[in-house]
Design a protein around this nucleic acid. Sequence first.
DNA 1: CTCCTTACTTACCTGCAAGTAAGTGGAGCG
DNA 2: CGCTCCACTTACTTGCAGGTAAGTAAGGAG
Lengths: 202, 202
Amino acid sequence: MTPRTDTRARILAIAEGHLMRRGYHAFSFADIAQELGIKPAAIHYHFATKPELVCAVIQAYARRFDRWVAAVEGLSAADRLTGYFEVGRLLVSDGRVCPLSMLTAEQDAIPADVVEEVRGLHARILAFYVDSLAQARTVGAASFGGSPEDEGGMVACTLVGAQLLARLHGPDAYVRVMRQQGRALGLPEQWSAFPTSAWSAR
Amino acid sequence: MTPRTDTRARILAIAEGHLMRRGYHAFSFADIAQELGIKPAAIHYHFATKPELVCAVIQAYARRFDRWVAAVEGLSAADRLTGYFEVGRLLVSDGRVCPLSMLTAEQDAIPADVVEEVRGLHARILAFYVDSLAQARTVGAASFGGSPEDEGGMVACTLVGAQLLARLHGPDAYVRVMRQQGRALGLPEQWSAFPTSAWSAR
DNA sequence: CTCCTTACTTACCTGCAAGTAAGTGGAGCG
DNA sequence: CGCTCCACTTACTTGCAGGTAAGTAAGGAG
């Protein structure tokens, strides 16, 4: 058995899939090892503990989010918002949800350093919402009462809830909810599709 | 040790607390037993398996929800809606979330019959939203675009997300989000407080 | 007073999880 | 050609989970 060179990256990818589909407690090193064709103990060579692995997964996800935000910087605020709603749809269609959505539910049952990582991810996503919503409102592309901070917090909750509840009734439920959220914000009915391709990009 | 007569009810109550605070996988029969001062195996006398226990917890919660809906039947639709938002706050202040919020996240990691129970709870809560929203709009106490079904689905997602994310930043985060949701719906700023007392009632 | 039922306890089993320690085969370098 | 390091495997430990089977103390019914 000749050793591979990309095992660490593969572990991360597989762990991410499990984390976004089933949550922290519902996957084991054995699951990852089996999918990779190696032994469970080999995971420990790359990641000492499970919290360490999961933290790395969340950090990688956060970096991907940052790259996506950078990639859509040139778009209008409304397109950025609807674009992110579409990214969420992409995940849900694949049976996944954002780690933020998944792990907030488990937070009293996962290690503190993982929770801290989730908190960091939430802050990034929230900042994106607040910024985009504020900008969209000033150019008249969106309307809402209260502060962008309050509205951003609400939109974040809606998306988290939509991702989780969609898994009870299928991806269409997510689309209906986020379309309704778009309508409530006065966003255009036509959603920007470009940003989803920017997501998958490495 | 003289046997108690209310052990079954106590198990349900303690299990409910753990389920709403930590989720399905993060509590064990041993936790419940220790809190009750009995041995873990004794739980099996009252509930054969963990899925059976959790199903019973959710059913009891659903019945409580039904009683609450019946208790607030005489209130205006707007008061019923803000009243339920307040019930959610009551839970969050106690470190809890609705089992619906908790278990939707875990649904790929829990037994199918438990998921079915969650689905049933979701249907009840959704029906309450849809009904109240439709009525509130017809009397001019709320305004939103689209169908009451779509709006109800969205409000359900917002509340689920608010309950979960509130645990990252404290109960105030929940209040801010749901106040913003109330504002978006055009509900009165003053929220009905009566319904929370109707919740705790047996 | 005895029997039966209720509500447990004690003792145990199985399975799986994370994690550890020591050993190993091949690739590359000197 | 031999050494060394990387990327594992093998074999193991610990711990806890849900679940089972048999035994038992207390209380009520007859």
